[in-house]
Amino acid sequence: MVEVRGIETELETFRFFDGMSEEHRQLIAGCGQHEVAKAGEYVFRAGDKADKFYLVRTGLLSVEVHVPGREGLVVDTLRDSDTLGWSWMVPPYVWALDARASELTRLISFDAVCLRGKMETDKDFAYDMFRRFIPVMDRRLTETRMRIVELVTEPAAE
């Protein structure tokens, strides 16, 4: 039998929400919905309005950079339980990269306008959200810097 779970219950399974109060989980869940991206389908593209953020439930997403005049590059992959996107938090709310499903991927998306509105009116909630997103940003930034070091210090094909 298939168990049907609401988004709020589902959020409990993501480490990203560890320790979050039920009240805040309800606020987030109220802005969420399930989405499915088929293999090859874009979740968003660079330059588009960043009006959502995503949690990957199952599947594989590639984060791609469009390189004018050349073939694009996959620079990262995201899998189950990963979070996708923080451009929705930072003006001008525009995606910097492409995200595309490499296989059938199930996501929970959260409406950014809805979330930003709730964060404006509830500062505790806003603080909780930033407290969770800043480590994600920090990690991605550190990882990017380390990959620059990797490029310089570890030899590759010529």
């Binding site: 590639s62 984060v63 073939e71 996959v74 990882e143």
Partner: peptide, 17 residues
């Protein structure tokens, strides 16, 4: 892989990941 062409289905990212 550190990076890959579009359409690659494997893992891309750091070894730490």
């Amino acid at each position: 892989a550190h990076s890959a062409p579009i359409g690659y289905r494997g893992q891309v990212g750091s070894v730490a990941h």
